[in-house]
Structure formats: structure tokens, C-alpha cells
Design a protein around this nucleic acid. Structure first.
Lengths: 120, 120
DNA sequence: CGGAATCCAATGTGATACTG
DNA sequence: CAGTATCACATTGGATTCCG
């Protein structure tokens, strides 16, 4: 059973400390664009600029911040090429891959939600 | 496939408009305490004050706000009793119930995440 | 190309006191 | 009991400019 009382799990090495696994997960993947980023990376690894193009409306700063968060939380990894100018490839870690099925169910639920709302 | 381009799904009746089902879902259940609230309500319907007791650290204002959000988004419903003083029972809608399995997988993933982090 | 720096706006959350 | 009202604060996201 989930336990969300404070300090239950002691100190962990996260960006932000959370006692409840649900809260923790929500925080890790709860950024405004993180769902989209994970969705893109679930299809294939992707270069920084390709992601920018695929996410209309995001700024460089925000994209970088969200990528950093995900990297620090162990969901994605980055790999620089030796090209000039260099390119940076982002891809899911094993932990990130494990989350993909959940992302899929979230997508399914969201779509069902949308069709229901439309009928109102 | 998921499509996150703006305006893709036209106007919906949500608190906040979202084009992508993933973004949409994240926003609906992404509030700081919404995961916990849904977890509690997944166990059984619950009165307002009982929820307060079960969520240490939340203020009345925030609890009410988060409950309102979930209610407006069709995830939970409220029912007032005729007692004096009156009590208010909160419970999941069908849409909310549909989300419970996802909440469970999120909890599972979060727990796995925590144990991996501990080993570092 | 893939950022970092700076500054600012919007949103979300919290403390406290009060009420039908 | 189940809220509101006010105010304050923190976090997040965004616009713009500059750099190796």
C-alpha cells in the first residue's frame, strides 16, 4: 500500500525528495513538456534540434531544463557526438523504458476522456 | 499516435484546454495532492474531514481547491448529507475509477524507482 | 548546434483567520 | 463540518540575448 506520510522513505538522491511513490512519479514526469518528450523518445532516440522541431511552442531554455530534469532523475541519457558543430542525442534509460507502458495507458485514458467530454 | 500540436482537438469543456491526451491527463491529475486524493478515494469514498486527517500537511484551502479541480474535471463527485453540521462525501466517478489501474502502475513504478535509487 | 544568462510573468501552493 | 477570504511565497515557464 502507498504511504504518503512525510519522511517515510528517508533521504533519497532525487532532485526533489518525496515520500510517496505516486507523488514522486508525478513530480518526475509532471513538467509541462515531459510527457511529450518521453513520448517522442519512446519512438526513437532523438537529437536536440529534432525535438525542438517536433515540439512547437517550446523554447530552448525550457527544453533544456526539462531534459536536464529527466536526465538528473535517471529517465533519459544524453550522448554528444564528435561532429562540428556537435550534436546531442537523447534516449531513454531502462527506467525510462519501463515508464513507456504507463505513458501509453495515460494516452489511452486521455483520449477516452476527450471523447466523453465532447459528447456533453 | 499521440498528437500534441496546438488546437488539434478543437475546443473542449475542460478547466484548461489541452490538445494532447498525455498533456491533458498530466494536467488533470498533476496537482501536488491529486495523486494522494485519488489513491485514498480508490480505497473507498471519504468525507472531507477524513481526507484532511489522512493527508498530513495539507491546508483546508488547498484540499478544497484540489477537490474542486477534480470535480470540475469529472474525476470525482461530491454529495452532501442532511446532517447538522453537514458532511460532504467524495467519491470517484466512472472516469476516476478508470484511472485507478494507472495510478497503481504509477505507484509500482515509483517504488521500483526508489529502490534503484537507494542502491546508488 | 546546443546551450547559458538574465529578467519577468504566470501559476500553484501555503498560513492564517473567519463563517454559515 | 466544510468551507471562504486575504495575503504572501515558491515554483515554473517564457522572451530575449549571447556564446563556445
Amino acid at each position: 500500500m502507498s504511504d504518503f506520510k512525510s519522511g517515510q522513505y528517508g533521504t533519497c538522491t532525487l532532485t526533489v525528495k518525496h515520500a510517496c511513490p505516486i507523488e514522486l512519479t508525478m513530480h518526475i514526469i509532471g513538467g509541462k513538456w515531459k510527457g511529450i518528450i518521453l513520448f517522442l523518445l519512446s519512438q526513437s532516440p532523438m537529437y536536440y534540434n529534432a525535438m525542438r522541431r517536433e515540439i512547437p511552442g517550446i523554447t530552448q531554455r525550457i527544453l533544456t531544463l526539462q531534459l536536464r530534469d529527466l536526465e538528473n532523475d535517471g529517465i533519459i541519457e544524453r550522448e554528444e557526438t564528435n561532429d562540428n558543430p556537435k550534436k546531442v542525442l537523447y534516449y531513454l534509460t531502462a527506467l525510462g523504458e519501463d515508464f513507456v507502458p504507463i505513458l501509453k495507458s495515460i494516452e489511452t485514458w486521455g483520449n477516452a476522456y476527450m471523447s466523453k467530454q465532447k459528447k456533453n
